[in-house]
Design a protein around this nucleic acid. Structure first.
Lengths: 339, 339
DNA sequence: CATATCTGCTCAATCGATGAAGCAAGAATT
DNA sequence: AATTCTTGCTTCATCGATTGAGCAGATATG
């Protein structure tokens, strides 16, 4: 009979009328605290049944407006085009849902302006908490949120105004570099420096990884020429053109590389294929990030896989505990070998 | 001075008080229809400035509660672990934002129960429209939404109760199979059937692709044994174990395969590596879906890349036009060759 | 028997934004 | 001078759910 007016949604008032009771009772029953509000089990059952029959769904807008906490949790993330961010988002959703929180996610395409815009929009939607993943300018985001009294947590890239959860970039890079150096030495019988390529020279992760890269070289007694650190950005095109330019400047290309993300690796691999350099012998590669197909590209590739489950548990650990002290949790990544 | 009470958010009432005017005027100014409401430019400017100073942000929950349209658009998506869904989500967000809509996305892990649960939650948040991507049971989702008067559109998998936008699965599969058959014939000098592996035998896409697969074989005059159609599910593990079982049952493994998604390809490749079969000669592969690293796996792989930009334009075309007739838009995919 | 306590509800204010209706003062028209 | 229009606002009800306060009747306690 209400099939004739499909546009109108059932509200607690409709249910109250049908049940011959008050909206207040309906609300109490449907949000589960009817015992606290001393509603009889009989009435509770009646209302629950009616709600089901009528296909009732709470109006979250009304509910959130009234309550003090929205139970909405936001995340901003740079891209969805690789397994790292993909699994971050999947885990985030799963853990949020497990806690009865509603996750909303926005992808910012690595654009600082969109980042702020997205944060502002999330504040408008009354998020209780915002996780900023790989934010270009985490502190600006934090300031915005702080002004609205909203907690924030940095993931992947650390900030100075909120707790952060990141990988142990230095440790991972140190170990990755060691392995690739060893692979090169094993094949060529002599120590030679690697090329570092990809990432932004200004971001914390890249800086830490470069530090690990340098320290591993120092450890091995191998000097690193400035030209060998190419923090050209993440995009495949940028990595590709950095390779091209490097090849123009030197004929003595490095035998191994540290590629700072799968996304940069895409460009590097493309250049290797197209340019014909390394035609007889593939360079030894180390990739900071993991992808199942990269793992199949050959046995000359070492990877660092960031421990996403542990990172997100750390994030929700902070959220659950309510901690707001500005700490940086470093999660050790996992070494993976191709093949 | 309001730094002391950071928890309390500025509302239009606060701004009204500060500006010595009414909340109504503030609202009119801030949502842009102050001309229509005959507010003077002078007051408008004053309010705008104040809002900026105070870091005011609308409470969307209140705003949506009052309005008839929420301008929230929902999407449910199975996974974030491959480039296809990753780009769908990125495009969806971009196109939604360009229209002033707020996108909310939920990943259902291919779980039908979660699918319905997610749809219900989105209805609670008053979405104006829901795009169901790759839904296991699109029609159930549609029914839910229809009861609430919410429009829906199917993406990737078609449904029978709402407009759908999908790839031309048959055409893509036909062409892909032709190419892989030709590659095999070129190398081995004789025609031989391929193996179809991955996907769910019950889903529309898989059925269409199997049809294309069969027709291409028929065209070439090559009979297809039932054992050669292995719709074992998408997960890598399932593909891997299907390969294992096939190898146990026959020593005469096919020289080429049609792999029904990159995610299944992961399992197939893993099995190829581990089992040692195909050690001398890699099989010719066709993969229905594209991934940049798969493209680098060797020159024996052909891929079908679904035309995500065009698919999402079609989706928003339907949304913009307000059409609700139950049509299926088929977007031709793009053939890509490895290397 | 009188009072206190408990049970099972209802009432009404509230969250913040929106917009129809209305009102006062000035400008234009007859 | 009287009337109508226009301008620039304000008032107030409303969206739907939540929750403190309160109230009637039943039950327990002194």
């Amino acid at each position: 009979m209400n099939r004739t007016t499909p546009a109108k949604r059932t509200t607690i008032y409709d249910l109250a009328e049908l049940a011959g009771t008050s909206a207040s009772a309906v609300s109490a029953v449907l949000n589960g605290n009817w015992k606290k509000r001393r509603i009889s089990a009989k009435l509770a059952e009646k209302i629950t049944k009616l709600a089901e029959e009528q296909g009732y769904a709470v109006n979250m807008q009304a509910s959130v407006l009234r309550r003090d906490r929205s139970k909405i949790i936001g995340m901003i993330v740079p891209k969805y085009d690789n397994r790292y961010f993909g699994s971050i988002v999947e885990q985030f959703e799963a853990l949020a849902r497990a806690r009865g929180l509603f996750p909303i996610i926005t992808c910012t395409m690595r654009d600082p302006a969109l980042e702020l815009e997205a944060a502002r929009t999330m504040l408008s939607y009354q998020v209780d908490c915002l996780v900023a993943t790989g934010a270009t300018d985490p502190d600006r985001v934090m300031d915005l949120c702080a002004a609205a009294g909203v907690r924030t947590i940095n993931l992947d890239l650390p900030g100075s105004r909120a707790p952060s959860v990141i990988s142990d970039n230095y440790g991972g890079a140190l170990e990755l570099t060691r392995r690739v150096l060893a692979n090169c030495e094993r094949e060529y019988g002599e120590k030679a420096p690697l090329l570092f390529i990809g990432g932004r020279g200004t971001d914390h992760n890249t800086m830490e990884r470069v530090r690990g890269f340098r320290d591993a070289h120092a450890e091995a007694g191998v000097p690193v020429d400035e030209m060998l650190v190419q923090t050209c950005g993440y995009a495949p095109e940028k990595a590709e053109s950095a390779m091209r330019q490097l090849a123009e400047r030197t004929s003595d290309l490095p035998r191994g590389m540290f590629v700072n993300s799968t996304i940069s690796l895409e460009g590097v691999m493309r250049w290797i294929r197209r340019s014909g350099h390394y035609a007889e012998r593939m360079p030894h590669l180390g990739c900071f990030d993991w992808d199942p197909f990269v793992a199949m590209l050959g046995d000359h590739i070492e990877m660092v896989r960031q421990d996403v489950p542990r990172m997100l548990e750390a994030v929700f650990g902070i959220i659950d505990s309510g901690a707001t002290d500005i700490t940086v949790v470093q999660v050790p990544p996992i070494m993976e070998k191709a093949g």
